[in-house]
Amino acid sequence: MLKKISIFLMFTILVGCTQSSNDGNSNQETATGGSSGNIFAGNNLNYIVTTNAGGGYDAYARLIGRYLVEKLGGDNVVINNVPGGGHIVGTNTLWKSKPDGLTIGTFNAGLIYNQLIGVKTLQFDIGKFSWIGKAAGEARSLVISEDCPVQSMEELIASNETIKLAAAGVGSASYIDTKLIAEAFDLNVEIIPGFEGNEGEMSMMRGEVCGQFGTTSSVQPFVDSGYGHFIITIGGDVEGVPNALEFTTTDKARRIVNLIGALSELGRVSAAPPGTNPEVVERLREAYYNTMNDPDFLAEAEKMNLPIDAAYGDEVTQLVLDALDQPAETIQIIADSISAE
């Protein structure tokens, strides 16, 4: 009996180990193709995702990766989820990966904020990644609940009453965005941090906070259900909602809105480690372009509710470099928004 049990245990461990080496953190999906004289032929493409499996970044990478590897003539795409530290751990990993073209990654472009203020745990320089492209932007909007005493941007700017806005944890891109908006329009708001995911919507339904600033797509169901409405938007058009730029009266405000706009526009970016052979980067960009224009890919993306609004190579690099080029005043505002009470 004991022997049987040991065999059973052994089997369990073996299965466990197989799971770990081929686990959900790294998935293999077969693609056809393979041409000769090609560094991708006979090789897997590693796609680093800086979040856990599930959710937006992961979904985009899995879908894009599958088509990308096919266009490159490689074997499989291996999704490598490296979560932690608000995208920093995974981005550090991508930065240190071998620049042979076989490893690429996707992360939150909001890390540009962290780089601007010189967060110490960043081991990378976002401007030096070999940018491949972006699949879609992530427009931001300020949503206000129907119970809020202010119902438009004009009323919010003029409000004497302090308005409470929900935001994610202090230091997150969402929190910094909200602080920047408050600063740009000199709003009389109090930001309550710590509302992750859709908790802010729930807080609005409970009547605790009035609104929140975040990605338009994540709040859209809340708005569609009639609980609130957008009052400004940045980095994308929402029907009937004014762009934040319309309310700017100072250079400082315009710079801030443009910075948030640039980050919104970057959205779902992909990059290779710095120092990747330019010819190889060119091949990656080309394959990325072909993927984004493949009707099958677009059909699948639509089925999965993943909007596609692509940009490529140099255009993305320029967007990143522009976003990184900020005057000291803006950087100070970002720094203050993290260190302030």
Partner: peptide
């Protein structure tokens, strides 16, 4: 939280709607 992410990925959009 992970399941929520997986639902979104499957094309099911949880939320008030």
């Amino acid at each position: 939280a992970i399941l929520l992410g997986a639902f979104v990925m499957l094309g099911i959009q949880p939320g008030p709607a």
